[in-house]
Nucleic acid binder design. Sequence first.
DNA 1: GGATCGATCGGCT
DNA 2: GCCGATCGATCCG
Length: 197
Amino acid sequence: MMARLGRDFFARDTLTVARELLGRRLVRLLDGERLSGRIVEVEAYVGEEDQACHARSGRTERNASMYGPPGCAYVYFVYGMHYCLNVVTEREGLPAAVLVRALEPLEGVEAMQARRGGRADVELASGPARLCQALAIDRQFDGADLCVPDVDLFIERAAGVPDGAVVAGPRIGVRGDEAALVAPWRFYVRDSRCLSR
DNA sequence: GGATCGATCGGCT
DNA sequence: GCCGATCGATCCG
């Protein structure tokens, strides 16, 4: 069986973790079945100085998980209907995380389709809220530790993506100051069919 | 206590 | 391309 990524992987510089998460496999155990996908798009959010980061106004109940230990999930609710999944990075006390924005479905495609209104596989997880719907990720996972064996959500070691296939660009849908708007902190796999937007 | 708006999505023009 | 859905967190008074 493949190895669940450990805390050491996440306890590093957020941009490094974001870049290296490309190609890894996000796995959700649901009703005895594996639902999984290859991570093809992510974004980094780093610290209270990052005006696009949810921690820009300091610690609140909503964003508390971002201040927690690396390797834990930060799941938030937006637009009154959607959930998005982040993985916390760096050291405890520093609010930073990587938003998982898109997956290429690998296992449990039928189960994902059932949760996504029967859509084609390219539309199952090609967006941060879509992948949460496909993998049944909601606030129950906010603060969950993805590095311990009994949690039904984790990231597995898998082949990485060569530098030549990685594109970096500005983050999607963010507001904030000029620095936040232009920071090339979105990373995605060039030519993937499952990117967001 | 009330107003505003969001790290989105899907349907419609 | 644009707009409505839908609600909780945050901010202002």
